[in-house]
Design a binder for these strands. Structure first.
Length: 290
DNA sequence: AGGCAGGTGGCCA
DNA sequence: TGGCCACCTGCC
């Protein structure tokens, strides 16, 4: 594969080495890996494929297969939200009165949320139930390879569309290692394929309504709906409570005995309209201690 | 070798 | 409402 020359992308907010890596493979996206031969990160989203490396902290370099669509650089800029002022958003978080959050922000300075395609985000997180990140990545790779379309001739495949998934049998999905998630994905695919523009409509709804709609899909509960809205629809008030956040809240915030609904409510009230961004810091911080 | 992992949904008190 | 459990599969 022939690559374009490396281009520089200036970032409004710098990364650190740690936050760059955490942003790509920390668990909000499952389509990035380190290419040892080229010594850079590579990943796919939508119909795009790119390689990235951290240049200075204020900029990254990117390149694309020569056959890429003309707008691929702009697509990457939107995916990475290069013009968003993440340091300003971080300032809005209640770290001044919250030493746990302050520590997490300090450790992962420059961490950001990606702006992933909504449909793909839903699919990836439907795979995530009781699975660790490496396993989720394998499921996504398998689906892309066997069902998704080639992005570049001879290159990687995109994740399948919901249309492609609805044309795939549950047993084929099971053969790709999805386990009991295969049934949920198949049924969700049939619902989406049978209703024109339903995902676009949900993505455009206000947070609460979008969450209500998403949880109507089989296999999508509160946590997966919140991940989909946070990482795939830029609804930053979404506050996914998973096992790691449960640990943070129960142990570091001393909220043992609270149930999940109460903890979700606590997060929303205490962390405010950017609760999801705060969650990403807390998640990274807690996982780093394991 | 058995238990557990970025959950969800159904069932029962 | 709240607790318990099955559900696939792979990995330690």
């Amino acid at each position: 594969m022939r690559w374009t020359h490396w281009q520089t992308l200036i970032l409004k907010t710098p990364f650190s080495d740690l936050s760059f890596k955490e942003t790509l493979i920390g668990g909000q996206a499952f389509r990035w890996s380190f290419n040892e031969i080229d010594q850079c990160w590579q990943g796919t989203w939508s119909k795009s494929f790119t390689q990235l490396r951290l240049n200075t902290e204020e900029s990254i370099e990117c390149r694309f297969p020569e056959e890429s669509e003309a707008n691929v650089t702009e697509s990457l800029r939107q995916y990475l939200l290069v013009d968003t002022d993440w340091s300003y958003l971080t300032e809005q978080l209640p770290w001044r009165s919250d030493p746990v959050l302050a520590d997490a922000i300090y450790a992962f300075r420059g961490l950001r949320l990606l702006n992933q395609p909504f449909a793909e985000t839903l699919l990836c997180f439907l795979c995530s139930a009781t699975k660790q990140i490496p396993q989720i990545k394998i499921m996504c790779e398998n689906m892309a390879r066997e069902i998704g379309s080639e992005i570049i001739p001879g290159g990687p495949h995109a994740l399948p569309t919901w249309k492609q998934l609805s044309n795939t049998s549950e047993s084929v999905l099971r053969s790709l290692g999805l386990g009991f998630r295969a049934k949920n994905i198949k049924q969700t695919a049939d619902l989406i394929a049978g209703s024109n523009k339903i995902l676009e409509e949900i993505e455009g709804l206000p947070y609460e309504e979008a969450k209500d709609e998403l949880t109507k899909f089989p296999g999508v509960g509160s946590k997966i709906a919140d991940c989909t809205l946070l990482f795939g629809a830029q609804k930053y008030q979404a506050f996914p409570v998973d096992t790691w956040i449960l640990k943070v809240l129960k142990n570091r915030y001393r909220l043992k005995g609270w149930n999940k609904d109460q903890l979700e409510h606590f997060g929303r009230v205490h962390l405010g309209p950017l609760a999801g961004y705060a969650q990403q810091f807390l998640f990274a911080y807690e996982r780093a201690q394991r």
